[in-house]
Nucleic acid binder design. Structure first.
Lengths: 223, 223, 223, 223
DNA sequence: TATGAATGAGCCTTCATTCAT
DNA sequence: AATGAATGAAGGCTCATTCAT
């Protein structure tokens, strides 16, 4: 199929290195097939991204079988594991992640749709977990920052794999290792969020009176 | 200058899209200048990356003026701020980060040199801070994972800026905002590392007797 | 046709001076035609040589209508005439000879094929005639040397035409002249071969006794 | 020296493959030296040919030490040996022959000078020998054709070396072999010329009466 | 509807030549 | 007188695209 072949080739060598010839060859199609069916190479690329929205999520749902009513800590662990499993899944449609990475560097209009249809739901899912973990009535910015902190630790293994492999050649990403990573990210984040929660509650309490010494200090340091 | 022009063009459109013509045009040089001075386009690319090794670090040293003997918490804050400032610095050589990002997706042999000469020193710098924060005699893997957690939170704003901007258009990355991010990442990480430290010490203490309940639980979860 | 145009251009200016552009222009084809049909310029060159294997021989077969059972003297005359007619044929595919000449100066891998498929058969054809003319059981080296002597006299008019024309501007190579040349080369060679034959037979006869005076004389002269 | 370097490079790779850079590099000269001293590449080429006129002949004079008064047979042998020795001399300025070969294929104005200054004297030298061998008052055309027959047998080993090497890989061109070749060519030619001589004399005798049967037969065959 | 032969713009690279020193 | 850095025209080749079938 032209879209599958296109996705694979785009992911492997990037949009510009990808040749229509190679895509058609892999799809067992005629060399004119891309232009015939999609108009041109760019249009095929857009279709490739659009077609695969949600595909990876089908295999690894955000909750990984953990019920919505489960404790936030378990739901966080499930979210992290789901994310890492997607990253380290090198099965046939694994190139999807690479396509998204490329969009990060050279965003096309396709990225808008991806953000709306795919990333925002994940962000909201994670935001709910984090909000619950923070407790009380956390302000949106804290939730956002903590969510970023969680998701960034996962994405790191996606974006920086080439560097990690070169820095620590002994580091393997076997399934057991993935579980270990998930373990670390989860506990690391839980501890941090809990601390944020405390700090937030303190801040809530004192906000009525005066800015805390600590926040003044931070403000000074930032200049 | 040919290297600056090359860096800008490579960053903007990637190695393959970049044309020698455009690079020479921007450098105000002849079409043959690249081949004359560097041999070919590949060599120019390698030189571009090599030339800028350390450039960004000169502007934002890892310690940002904090003396080596300062407390680890301050040195961590300096490391994080330095990292974020590099990421959000949109001055002339801001394209350097993009080049590295591109290397992450399509690593070339140039990445090897970058890792050795530039990234490894940073990793060791951060590792020293994290080790001190963990206290005791932390095992190398814990140090590594915590370092990844710290650095990943910074890199996130580099890799995922297009997504963040689309998800939260109100999020601006003004200098004050950067300080706020640095503040969050630092305190988030400090709390988490402190927790890791406690857990590690407990593990050390109990290792002589039996595997702790918590570690057994983690083990079970990982299957 | 691309091969004809290529042959003409290659012959006129040599492989390196020949431009794909000019070849395509003459063939009335697109600039990309060479690469499309043959892969690259080198491949076209090989095809040009390969395609014309036997072409010239079709027009002027080695025996020129003389039956295989004819006397060796007649077959020699036919061989010589055929050779000269090929050389002095300035019809459309006359550039073939020039290509071969160029191969003599800068042999490419194409020459190997030409030797095997085209030149060797001619050498064997001529060798058979010479062997019959020598009579008895001539040794292979004598056959070879005499064959060289015959063929070289023909080739001379191919290789050295520019010199001959400059040395003797009055020398024209009209069809009658070609016949005269063929006449000379044939009778010159027949007389010489007959002499070789006599000498060879003498040598055979005396070899049982002692080295002949003549062979000793030749040996002395060669020092 | 620029001319020597130029000669070597031109001979090795031909005029067009030769690069001014390589010539200057070998001569230890600046890249602009060719243009500075000679104007352009073509002018250097002409100078190279002009400079080397007569060089090879100094090493192997036409008579090879045989006195002008010696019998024609000896002078012929000397001429042939001298020619072959030049051809098979692979010393430093051996590329001269290659340059001449290239001139045969793509004659430039340089060839005119070569013919006048170098080749014509050789032709006259050989013509004198042949005329003496023919005896009587041979007509110029017979002398010319016989001279061609002699010289062509020598040149063959120059022009066709690549083919001979491929056809008969066992054929080596050691000094002894060269003597053997000289021996063959000399005796082959002597026998043939002697036969021509007889035929010529017969023709002289009969010319007063009627065309001979043999010449009529030749005339018929040539149609 | 689908093909694939053919197109032509544009790429990297080479190389003789120039020109300021 | 001699240099060598820089030039720019032109080469082979790639590849998305077209068009007759």
């Amino acid at each position: 199929m032209l879209i599958e072949a296109g996705g694979a080739v785009f992911a492997e060598v990037g949009f510009h290195n990808a040749t229509v010839r190679e895509i058609c060859r892999r799809a067992g199609a005629n060399i004119a097939a891309v232009n015939y069916h999609f108009g041109d190479k760019d249009a095929l690329y857009r279709e490739v991204l659009a077609y695969y929205q949600g595909r990876a999520l089908q295999k690894y749902p955000l909750d990984l079988g953990v019920r919505p009513g489960a404790p936030a800590t378990e739901r966080l662990r499930a979210f992290v594991r789901s994310f890492l499993l997607r990253i380290f899944d090198h099965s046939s449609d694994a190139w999807h992640g690479k396509l998204i990475s490329r969009e990060m560097i050279d965003p096309t209009s396709a990225l808008d749709a991806i953000v709306v249809e795919r990333i925002r739901p994940q962000a909201q899912h994670l935001g709910g977990i984090v909000r619950e973990l923070l407790g009380g009535e956390p302000d949106v910015e804290t939730v956002r920052l903590c969510s970023f902190s969680v998701v960034s630790q996962c994405l790191f293994y996606h974006h920086c794999q080439p560097v990690v492999c070169r820095l620590f050649p002994e580091q393997k990403f076997s399934p057991e290792q993935v579980e270990k990573l998930a373990d670390h990210i989860t506990s690391f984040s839980l501890a941090a969020i809990k601390a944020c929660s405390r700090r937030g509650n303190e801040a809530d309490a004192k906000r009525a009176t005066t800015p805390s010494a600590s926040s003044r200090r931070r403000l000074r340091a930032s200049r």
